[in-house]
Write a protein that binds this DNA or RNA. Structure first.
Lengths: 190, 190
DNA sequence: CTGTCCATGTAAGGCGTTACATGATTGT
DNA sequence: ACAATCATGTAACGCCTTACATGGACAG
């Protein structure tokens, strides 16, 4: 659906090769949109066909040529349209919730092991987000500050989402350990 | 990846037709795992090939026959293995974060419109979760209570996740309206 | 007589993953 | 000598979506 747009987004910042794009994804987008190497190359071919990007080919003898991709005006427009169009409802797919939903078929110990593993993953993710907090940002211009702001928002989201998730995981772990099989809201005197 | 397991999960509760499965998904799993009709039928065929389900065919003259699917012992075992195996890291794909990440290319008004739409969707989702809270549950046996508990957990998750999301969306909306382009954590005197 | 429910499927296409394949250059 | 980095791709397969197609039964 949107790898195309992610690529156009990066190319709107600067022209680069497929290889550089892959690095851009890994460095700054992998937390909310992973970029698969072979898919990046296939998508670049398609974007070229669609005239959303131009290619500059540098031959290298018997090696495959290096190709530098640039966004075209039409690509820029396409990107802008996508960026400014609200998305509408999107399907949710949470395999862990699927496991929990059928948790009745497992023993408490088995469920606790699942939860524990999920807690460990979440704590790891949180550590990584914490490490990315407050990168060395010297005084910037107002426009720069605004650009940086938007890219930092994705980290903010990751932090909040994972913190909430971790709290919830811990709470269900505790309830199961106490064999207290009640939903949280049944306790609150609403 | 897991529609197979979701189907096996439902069939482990009772045998049913593809049509009934679709209704089961819509009624109780669509919040964390949507079940696409045509995919359900194709997956049932595959599960049959794998001997994870059995089919009971009821001919109906010139109509397509009705087929009742049941889980086999081997299917039950496969399900149990999947349910009790921790998942490991899974990729995240959040198109809205992708839009925000490149928000620097949009005007404040355009970004605010995106956020507003996302807020509306989230409020809607929250309303639906609220409506599902506390369904009429007469006194149950201990085992029943445990089973219900696990299925209610998915609603709990939906509530918490959406509440957190909504709070965050509101906070970024306010910051943009105030033209205060600072990440939240840069304010906290850590 | 119109629409909703019951009940089944096929076809085509897009998106994503994994594995495989090549080969120069640079650093340890 | 060996590994990492630079740089490109193909092939095969799986999952998911959308659209299309059929047709009886029953309720308003």
């Amino acid at each position: 659906m949107s790898l195309q747009h992610a690529i156009l987004g990066f190319l709107s910042l600067r022209s680069m090769t497929g290889y550089d794009l892959k690095k851009s994804f890994d460095r700054s987008a992998s937390h909310f949109w992973p970029g698969n190497q072979s898919q990046i190359y296939r998508t670049l071919s398609k974007l070229t066909e669609l005239d959303f990007v131009d290619v500059d080919v540098h031959e290298r003898g018997d090696l495959l040529p290096t190709k530098t991709y640039s966004i075209t005006p039409s690509g820029r427009q396409h990107l802008h349209t996508w960026l400014s169009t609200p998305l509408g409802e999107r399907p949710v797919r949470e395999p862990f919730l699927l496991q929990l939903f059928f948790g009745g078929l497992l023993s408490d110990d088995e469920v606790l092991a699942l939860i524990q593993s999920e807690i460990a993953l979440t704590e790891d993710a949180l550590k990584q987000y914490e490490a990315l907090k407050e990168p060395p940002t010297p005084p910037e211009s107002k426009e720069d500050k605004r650009k940086v702001f938007f890219s930092l928002l994705t980290l903010e989201f990751g932090l909040h989402a994972n913190e909430t998730y971790l709290r919830w995981l811990t709470s269900i772990k505790e309830r199961i350990e106490a064999q207290d099989y009640t939903a949280q809201w049944t306790k609150e005197p609403s």
